[in-house]
Design a protein around this nucleic acid. Structure first.
Lengths: 253, 253
DNA sequence: CGTGAATTTGACGCCAGTCAATCTACGTGG
DNA sequence: CCACGTAGATTGACTGGCGTCAAATTCACG
């Protein structure tokens, strides 16, 4: 696999869950990722609400999140940005960010200029569709979060979140067997699923005590993924990882 | 105003909150809306989860909603689609709908074929940006709903929803003074903001008793919009209605 | 008017929040 | 190498917002 080690490695892996890309596509993506990279330390802000949107950010390494803060300090984490995730392919048409983006761990990201994005999509039809797919999936995840927070119990919410993160990490090759990293504090989890820290703690213990997961340090293990999925009604269809663009595939690669 | 009465009237009005469109742009939009229109009766489904996505739907008249149902019957309304709203500009790259779309009232919609959309965006740069803006705003609304359900109290959630719907309707000219239609049952409101019907009922009474709103039949009046906005921390910036594309404006219209 | 849907009300219970203390892990400086 | 400081995790006691159940009332409409 020639693209292991490419800066855009995780993005390429993710997009290949939709369709296969040509070497030319992959090369173009990797080149775009090399123009300007930045390293941001843990728990720091990348973008502030109110900022003028800049070009597209691609997470190369580490975890970040979108979040919004209310006047009285309540905070909601709106999305997690994992390696291979693109932030805001088209935000540049907006004048002002309506939320912030901050890091969870130290993050390396590629800043892809708007113009480079334009070239990428206009010159590579397949790639353009794959990028479109990636932004549709991001929207689908946001919708699923609405369902998760709106309808599910604490137990289901938390289990659902863990399932999603595990499956998304697996899609980019960041799991080892049934374990993956989970660099979130319980306070961050709480702000993600609309619960208090105390209740997150108790619910985690419940998930552990029924033998579904282990969580020690920053390492999550899901012992029985199928069982967990059933218990929390996690249906991965919204992640659209089933090579839905397979009718577009060619053998050129 | 030449475009009053155009089928795409509401969409045009909405897009003009972003930038001004040329007569050519408006004409193209209106033509696209005339190719195929459909009428769907109240409380009926337009699209089912699992369906193959079809072309783009434009709501010409009436209210619809996106929703998702869990196995045990719990339902979450994920978004409201109001006149002028486009559903899924690019879904055709997905193989399967991950949620359903149903009507709230009787709805008239225009089905715009994928190919027509392509022509619209490739031949009209300004329009293309405006449509991009509209889908970014839809995503921003979805994020705000996550915040709303995740962090706010029942009182705030409900007030916030009412503010949003009022402001969105006003943006397409569907308000009269400080009143607008609200064709939702309390059960639908409950499934929207993650509360029980009973509690929605009590919270509505609370909003009425403090003199912020009236709601009789299908008619909502917000007596003191500013006060309501403050009381529920509604900040309309996420709707991006401030002509953020104004630097693109020309005088050609 | 009759009938079912929608709204409203009351009583009661529980899930999850709050407050506050304790424990643990870990990095830092003496 | 250990004392100490701090962030994060955990626990217990208590509270309250919101859910559930069930009945009553009003509304919409044929």
């Amino acid at each position: 696999m020639a693209w292991r080690g490419a800066l855009a490695e995780f993005l390429i892996r993710k997009l290949e869950h939709f369709t296969s890309l040509s070497n030319d596509d992959k090369h173009a993506l990797d080149q775009a990722s090399r123009q300007r990279t930045r390293r941001i330390r843990s728990r720091d802000d990348i973008v502030h609400e109110g900022d003028l949107p800049q070009g597209v950010n691609l997470i190369l390494d580490g975890w970040a999140c979108r979040y919004k803060t209310l006047e009285d300090g309540r905070r909601q984490i709106i999305a997690y940005l994992l390696p291979g995730d693109l932030c805001d392919q088209n935000v540049s048409v907006l004048r002002e960010m309506d939320h912030s983006i901050g890091t969870v761990t130290a993050v390396t990201l590629a800043e892809i200029p708007t113009e480079t994005m334009r070239q990428l999509t206009s010159g590579h039809a397949r790639l353009s569709q794959a990028l479109c797919w990636e932004s549709l999936v991001a929207a689908a995840i946001q919708r699923e979060w609405t369902v998760n927070i709106g309808q599910r119990t604490a137990f289901e919410r938390l289990g659902h979140l863990l399932c999603e993160l595990y499956v998304r990490l697996r899609a980019v090759g960041l799991t080892q067997g049934n374990t993956c990293e989970l660099p979130l504090t319980q306070a961050e989890i709480a702000d993600t699923i609309g619960l208090s820290v105390v209740h997150v703690n108790r619910t985690l213990q419940e998930l552990r005590s029924v033998g579904l997961i282990s969580l020690r340090g920053r390492e999550l293990t899901i012992h029985r993924l199928e069982a967990l999925q059933r218990a929390v009604q996690f249906n991965p269809n919204y992640l659209h990882l089933g090579r839905e663009g397979r009718h577009l595939d060619s053998n050129e690669a």
